[in-house]
Design a protein around this nucleic acid. Structure first.
Length: 737
DNA sequence: CTAGGATCATCAATT
DNA sequence: ATGATCCTAG
């Protein structure tokens, strides 16, 4: 079989080790996807039915690609079940979740839905959301779910600690509400699947008998709950292959447990471990840099990637004066290389946070460089898209209060907060769903026009629901738009015409996606139901739609870039407090910083041939100008691999870029600046001042800036920060302690 | 009661 | 840029 000819010995060994537990430690660029694909092809070649193979991937995109590649190798393979944890669990739950008390048409709540639900709960229980923000509670609940801790278990564990008790009760209330709404959050998808398997062994049995060979990619990013799921599924036959790289574990903050990979051999007795340490992707320069950085982490299995590739060009390091000039440098380099014959698609710009993309986008636009941004505000999270989706969700699942209440007054139909509160109170008192309360709103006192508008809304929903029962998704959307006149409302309520156009465009795009979905479903002979559409929509990641085909520069966070590679990578904002983030720096334990370092390792290893690292001496960060030191990780890269470019001379060239768009923006900004409320600040140079975020600092300089004053303050242990006097509420204090 | 405007605080990474 | 909150005018 030709699959062997191009594999190295370790890869070949991994391909043939199909029986029993296998830990595949695959370094960046070591050809692990190829091994996984070939391994599955090898099984099928040896008589395993594709139907019996499960491949869990990290993104839908990876799943799709895996299927394609298996198909190419075998001419079949369509029956291999390749999907993400979340998609897989939804499929399992749709079929059997009623066995544990949900309805099969459950709704999936996204982050925003869930935040709204929690805010409602806090309000109802009179919990001060300043002291206990919804996000905090949800974070705690998420971690409990990752650990497979139920509300009841948490209540029992809470002991006498008031805060713990309160959190446990909120978790309980939250979970009950989800159930009443027939909704699951993202964590529930996995959690409830494990619950289902534990409570209904016959269901587990069915899947154990079906999935005789299981592989899990990006195993270092699984959490405890996912680990248990995998363990349950493979318990009978033990043919479980996990692939990962502990050095690329970057999702600790969302519950990924690095122990899963560190302890695999313990958890799955008899496991074999195979290491893939030869890198085929990057130049030795890039690889040496990555190795040098990651070896500073204490908590790792330890491995060193090597390559036969040539050294290539040095890593280019550039410090710009400002973040604006940094962006100009990046775009300038891209244009230069493009002129020398490179394609735009050869370049990616990676950054630590989405907010950094703005400046770079501005410059790309200005210089007419085609680009794509992955991540940021996602399509399905836009307000107008979510509004339309809320109609669909409410139609699909009338118990979904969150969606129903979202559209109760969207578009405006004269149903305000007070009315909503009264219906909600009635619903709670009578212990009926919100929808039912709406229908019997005649019995609720105090509603304007005796609840006429509410009644009308209920009728609208009823009509739409009946319509949806017999029409395909796209037509339902059209009907919703028609009946609500949503697009016109958009134009009349939105003042900014461009924004309104944009939003209307997004609504149409949603419609187009629905049509596409129907076509796809017909082709693949899968369900085109409303529920299926909503499910797809809930689980797509932005990266899933990233097609390499377009010739465009691609911008994304380092997190999104995991698993991808580019000829040339720009790593922008390589500064303390940005990368690594402030939070990780101030974290007393090393874990946060080690995760940042792994993230840095991921970033570096995305590059095949060229790596640019850039930073800026000053940067607008949130609402201040920050003066950050270069990232500490820079010092960990051996100097002989790095060439510093253009730091001074280039700066003088920067103002030359075509000025119009940018200056217009600056002008507009300047005009919208509010006039200062006061004269000179109440402190002078040398005074001690208090700033609410950074605490006490010393004023180094005060200088006039337009109508206001720019104040430079030195904070011990943090560094210098600049503020606009009237915006910053700096308070003069005495200089003690 | 509701709509609409103004003001203010907030802001990592994602399925 | 967005949401929460407060105010004013119908």
């Amino acid at each position: 079989m030709d699959i062997f000819t191009s594999l190295n010995p370790a890869q070949r060994e991994a391909v043939m080790a199909t029986e029993g537990p296998l830990l595949l430690l695959a370094g960046a660029g070591s050809g692990k996807t190829r091994v996984l694909v070939n391994r599955i092809a090898y099984m099928v070649y040896n008589g395993v039915r594709p139907f019996n193979i499960l491949a869990i991937t990290f993104t839908n995109k990876a799943a799709r690609e895996m299927k394609e590649r298996i198909g190419k190798l075998l001419g079949e393979g369509g029956d291999v079940w390749a999907s993400t944890f979340h998609s897989m669990c939804v499929r399992i739950l749709r079929r059997d979740i009623e066995k544990i008390g949900y309805d099969g048409k459950f709704t999936i709540y996204d982050t925003e839905d869930v935040a709204k639900l929690m805010k409602q709960i806090l309000k109802e229980r009179n919990v001060n959301d300043k002291l206990l923000p919804a996000q905090t509670v949800l974070g705690v609940i998420g971690r409990k779910k990752d650990m497979l801790i139920t509300p009841q278990m948490y209540i029992n564990d809470a002991g006498s600690d008031f805060r713990e008790q309160q959190l446990a009760e909120l978790y309980d209330a939250y979970q009950k509400r989800l159930r009443a709404n027939n909704a699951l959050d993202f964590d529930d998808l996995i959690f409830q699947t494990v619950e289902l398997f534990r409570k209904k062994p016959e269901v587990l049995d069915r899947y154990q008998n079906r999935f005789l060979y299981i592989s899990v990619d990006e195993y270092q990013d699984t959490n405890y709950c996912q680990y248990q799921l995998v363990k349950l599924l493979s318990a009978k036959h033990g043919n479980i292959c996990v692939v990962g790289d502990d050095d690329q574990s970057i999702y600790g903050w969302r519950g990924a447990d690095i122990r899963n990979i560190l302890d695999f051999e313990k958890d799955f007795p008899g496991a074999r471990t195979i290491r893939l340490e030869q890198n085929y992707r990057s130049t030795s320069t890039i690889l040496d840099a990555a190795n040098a950085v990651i070896k500073n982490n204490r908590r790792r299995k330890g491995k060193t990637l090597w390559t036969e590739n040539l050294a290539g060009t040095p890593i280019m390091y550039h410090t710009a004066r400002t973040d604006i000039e940094e962006a100009a440098f990046v775009v300038g380099e891209i244009k230069e290389k493009k002129a020398e014959g490179a394609a735009y698609r050869d370049f990616s710009v990676l950054y630590r946070m989405n907010a950094q993309s703005r400046l770079i986008e501005d410059h790309l636009v200005r210089e007419s460089v085609p680009y794509r941004v992955v991540g940021g505000v996602r399509f399905y999270e836009r307000r107008e898209v979510k509004d339309v989706l809320a109609y669909l969700k409410a139609i699909n699942n009338p118990l979904d209060d969150i969606s129903l209440r979202r559209i109760l007054n969207v578009p405006r139909r004269g149903i305000g907060e007070e009315t909503e509160n009264r219906i909600s109170a009635y619903a709670m008192e009578m212990e009926v769903p919100f929808y039912d309360a709406m229908e019997s709103c005649g019995e609720i006192g105090g509603l304007p026009y005796n609840g006429k508008r509410v009644k009308e809304f209920a009728n609208l929903m009823e009509g739409l629901t009946a319509y949806a029962a017999e029409k395909p998704v796209a037509e339902v959307i059209q009907e919703v738009l028609k009946q609500t006149d949503y697009v016109n409302e958009l134009h009349s309520t939105e003042h900014d015409k461009d924004v309104a156009k944009d939003r209307a465009g997004n609504v149409l795009e949603l419609l187009a996606k629905a049509e596409e979905f129907e076509k796809q479903a017909e082709k693949e002979n899968t369900s085109a139901s409303l529920a299926a559409f909503l499910e797809e929509v809930a689980l797509v990641a932005d990266i899933d739609n990233y097609a390499e085909g377009h010739d465009a520069v691609v911008l994304m966070t380092v997190h999104s870039a995991k698993g991808l590679e580019f000829n040339t990578v720009f790593l922008a904002g390589f500064e303390e407090h940005v990368f690594p983030t402030s939070r990780s720096i101030f974290d007393t334990s090393e874990t946060g910083l080690e995760e940042e370092r792994r993230l840095c390792y991921v970033a570096i290893t995305r590059a095949r041939e060229r790596l640019f690292i850039t930073n800026a001496r000053s940067r607008r960060l949130f609402h201040e100008t920050a003066y950050n030191q270069p990232s500490r990780f820079l010092k960990e890269i051996p100097v002989n691999l790095v060439e510093t470019v253009g730091t001074e001379t280039r700066n003088s060239e920067f103002p030359r870029f075509s000025p119009l768009a940018g200056n217009m923006r600056l002008l507009q900004k300047a005009h919208t600046m509010p006039a200062p409320k006061t004269g000179p600040p109440a402190y002078v140079e040398g005074d001690s001042v208090l700033q609410k975020k950074y605490g006490k600092g010393k004023v180094l300089a005060i200088k006039p800036a337009g109508a206001d004053y720019e104040v430079t303050v030195e904070f011990p242990g943090i560094g210098q920060k600049k503020f606009m006097a009237h915006l910053s509420n700096l308070e003069k204090t005495n200089g003690d302690d």
